[in-house]
Structure formats: C-alpha cells, structure tokens
Design a protein around this nucleic acid. Structure first.
Lengths: 286, 286
DNA sequence: CAGTGGTCTAGACCACTGA
DNA sequence: CAGTGGTCTAGACCACTGC
C-alpha cells in the first residue's frame, strides 16, 4: 500500500546501492550491462538508465561510453538539512551539539542582512555608505529578529552564529527556547518552508566579540560561512554568519570533468585534514 | 558536417538557454509546456525532458510537478578547469594572473603528499608519528616534484601555492618555465589527463614562510584550499595546498532540497562579500 | 568484430496543480 | 475538471570500446 510511494527507478537505485554496500558489486568492478539489468528486474531500459543516472550524479559509479560504468568508493553527499543545520551535522559525526544564546532581539537589520533579506543596495558594493546606521533615524525597512548563539560540540564552544530572520519567521522564535536545540528543525515543524540556501565560505580574523566568546585571541583565523536561506518561492528568510574555530570543520568539494555529472558533491567533515596531517607537502627544505 | 557532434537534446538545451538570455523567456516566468516544445521543435518528449533536466541541474529552471517550471536567474556553475586553475579563474574575473616561483625540486614527499599520492597511512590520523622525517634515512617511497609559487593578481601577491606532483607528471615541469603560466594548462597540453579533484576548504593561521611571502603577520588568517587531483582512472597525480589572503576569494555553494537536483553548484568569486559588506548582521547593540 | 552505453522515438498511464 | 510534469515501456539506430 504505502510501499508504492517510491517510483520504480528509485527502488532500483536503492537496490543497486545496497549491492554495492554488501560487496555484491565490489568497488572498482564494472556494473552489469544495462541490458542484463533489464532482464533481471524485468523493467525497461529507460528505467534502468534513470536509476544508473542517479548513482552517477551521486558519484557512486563513474565512466561508461562503450564499456560498463565502474563502482567507486562513495563520497556520500550530505543532504540539504545535514549541510544546513549545525545540530544535524554534529549528530552525523557522532558528537553532541549544544548552544548558549547570547542575544535574541527584534530590531532594524544590519547592512548585510538588509541587503540579503530585503534587497537593499546599501552595502559598500553599491557605493553608498548607508546602511551602517542601524537603529538610526527611521524605520523604513521591516525589522528583523537577530539571534546570536555560541554553538558547542560536546560542551566545547566551536562556533559563533549570528543570524537575522525575516520578521514573519523570526517572531516564531520568541515562542522557542533557543538554548534547547535546532532552530532549523523548529521552524520546519512550524511549517516554514526552508528550501534552498547559498553559502559563501571564506576566512576572517576574529573580532573582539568572537574572540571573547570562542576563547581565542582577536585577529586569529576563523572559517566563516555566510548563508542566505530562501523558501520555495525564492523569498529570503534567513541571513546567517557562522564563524568556526579552525580545525573544527572543513568543506570538501568533489569535482569532475564528466559532462554527465556537471555539479559538485559538497561535504562538511570534522577532521581538519584529508588524512589527518596538517603540515605542508612542500616547504623549504633548508 | 561537424555540427552534428552535439546531440539533439544538447542543442535544445542551448536554444533554451539562449531564449532565457535573450529575454524571450524572462526570469520568473513559466517555461512553455513540454508538449508544446515537442510540437515546436518536432522532437520526442523524452528529448525535451532531457534538455530541461540539464537546465534543471544547472539551476536555470526550478519547480514543476503539475505546473510548468519557472525560469530562475542563473548562478552559472564554474567548469572543472575554471574551478581548478588559478590562471583561468583570474581571467574569468577579469584580472591578470601571475606567479613567482619560489622553489622547484625533486625529492621525497612530505607526509600529507605521501598520504594522498601514494596512500601511505603515515599521517597522524593513523596514529604513527612517521612521515615527518622528509629526506630521512631511505627512499622507499617514490619521489615527487615539489613546486612552491607565489600567485599574483594584477601583480599583487594573493596566494601561496605548494604543490607535489607524482614523478611521472612532475618531471615534465623541468621542461617548463613555471614563471610563465598555468601548470594545469601545460600538463594538459602534454597529454596529462587531469579528470577529477577533491578540495578541502578551511582556515589556517599563516606560518612564517607564508607570512613573509604574502606580506602579512604570522598567525593572521588565510583561506586554505587543499586539493587532490586524479586522472580518469583514479590515480592521484597532484596534491596541492593553496593559501589565499582573506578577501581575495570566496567559495560559494548553492544547495536545494529539490530531489531532482541533488548536488550543489560551486562557484569561486573575488568579491569578499555577498553584496560587498563584511560587517555582521547581528552584533551587540549595546 | 561483438558488446556496450548514448540517443531518440511514440505512446501510455498516473499524480499533482490550479481554476 | 483540464493541463501539467513524473514515470514507464518497447523498440530503433548510432558511437564508442576492446578484442
């Protein structure tokens, strides 16, 4: 009854993944020919191809063109929510997430939040020097709800999170204990349709507040993840600026020249290095 | 004659992109129904769907399911080579790339390079403290070719690049003027099949060498991009550790809950902020 | 050369959307 | 309800791979 919710090609893809996990299709070996899979499962070739295309975009199989694709060690892509939510990510890597709320306030947006949430061209990029006068003369702009939290991993502070929500969603947070858990999960449970996000990753020096809250010196390196989250119809709902201590997290990006897998797999992990070492491959010998 | 190299669905996709660029299909509007496109181009529905699927994974159109997909402002994904090559990236953003070679040497690999290129489990992650003794007693491992370069944008130093190549490819570099241009382009011209790469992005403090070469204080923040590049058959060829000055580059990741676009679009850009501002959306009001 | 995946067609049924 | 995309089938031809 309820098992029919998943389309046939999806069930095929799942079966294929299972066989790879079980070792029935060992990594490095070739996948059976499409024609053979058609016979075995008694399905059309199009359906088999759709299932294989799924595995291909997942990076589970590679190659083809005249020969069978080959099974690859799977660099499982993280789901949207795992990539988006600190709490969910922490649990994925087997750590205990936590948070200490520094501030929860309703007020006029800062310059960056105003630009991202309301499209105000007030940023320095637009030339004008406006927008920095938060709480200034008037309130032409809608207000936002600002949340500042220190995020913890096994009780240790590892990240400073500064978020601005559009008022419609942000007001829900005054009914929520922001020390309790995931805002992302809470907003979803309240029906907020968080659908897509864009992240900007770079490195910054710790400012005074971050330094104090994270227990490092001002000016020391932090990994910054700024993100804008939007609903299904494209309305920006959240602007957040998350600053991580170095060594806590890294973003891994998998890329290929394969035209059939045009995008990238992105993963966040907790180990600081590919294999653990953080020294340089090539540095002065003398 | 030669125009037939591109499959029909590919030409359709190109035509669709053109119409969007021309404004014939304005952003925000709905794409014509599949059935109508079938009639207009006199092609099968499967072909139209394949073309639309391409645009969907590119993020050019979104939505569907009972209603026509909608045109979205295109966040063009960068190609593998643009994402991979500093020179190509610099030209994309309209700047002039440059480089100053600090060192070109053949020798035993460092710990991280040995781990990534030869699978040596010598890193601290494996527990043992070996691998740090570069140039030590013996040469059980194959040697590598190390290249250290300062990369320039319009003549200004912005990145320190420390790369180790497998010997087979690296030896080609002794026939190349590493001050002249892109090693990536050179190796490709020599037939080296650079096919896929994995990047690890994090933040680090500048060490003494980086500080001196980039003209910053030791301990100041750098954005680090470590990458392993492999050939088509999966053999690792290059391990590189690139450290950028803050504000020079940022990595942007586009993510969706849409099951049909499971992956991410990754872009590198030169502006430091989404809209230019680098101040915080929410910081202490008092 | 035989076998493989890449492309394309024509037609069918279903699930979802919105009036 | 009519129209849309999502799924699935059956069959065909071609381009590429490797023997």
């Amino acid at each position: 009854m309820s098992t029919r919710r998943i389309p046939l090609h999806g069930r095929l893809a799942e079966e294929f993944r299972q066989r790879i996990a079980d070792g029935a299709w060992p990594a490095g070996s070739a996948v059976p020919a499409e024609a053979e899979l058609c016979r075995e499962f008694d399905v059309s070739r199009g359906t088999v191809r759709q299932a294989l295309a799924t595995l291909r975009t997942e990076g589970v199989i590679v190659g083809g063109q005249g020969k069978s694709p080959v099974v690859r060690q799977a660099p499982t892509t993280q789901s949207f929510s795992t990539f988006h939510s600190f709490s969910e990510w922490a649990e994925l890597i087997g750590r205990t997430p936590g948070q200490r709320t520094v501030e929860l306030a309703r007020r006029a947006p800062g310059a960056a939040a105003a630009a991202e949430l309301f499209g105000v061209p007030a940023g320095p990029a637009a030339g004008a020097g406006t927008g920095a006068d938060r709480g200034g003369p008037l309130g032409a702009l809608p207000q936002v709800v600002d949340v500042v939290r220190v995020r913890l991993l096994d009780g240790e502070p590892v990240m400073l999170e500064r978020t601005s929500f559009a008022l419609e969603e942000g007001r829900l947070l005054f009914d929520f204990d922001t020390d309790a858990g995931s805002i992302f999960a809470y907003l979803q449970s309240r029906g907020v349709d968080l659908y897509s996000a864009r992240h900007y990753i770079d490195a910054v020096a710790a400012d005074a507040e971050a330094a104090e809250l994270l227990g490092v010196d001002a000016g020391s390196p932090l990994l910054r993840d700024r993100r804008i989250t939007s609903t299904r119809d494209g309305r920006p709902v959240e602007y957040s600026e998350d600053c991580y201590l170095p060594g806590v997290i890294n973003f891994s990006i998998d890329n290929t020249m394969d035209q059939r897998a045009p995008l990238s797999r992105v993963t966040t992990s907790s180990t600081t290095a590919p294999t653990g070492a953080s020294d340089h491959p090539a540095s002065r010998a003398g």
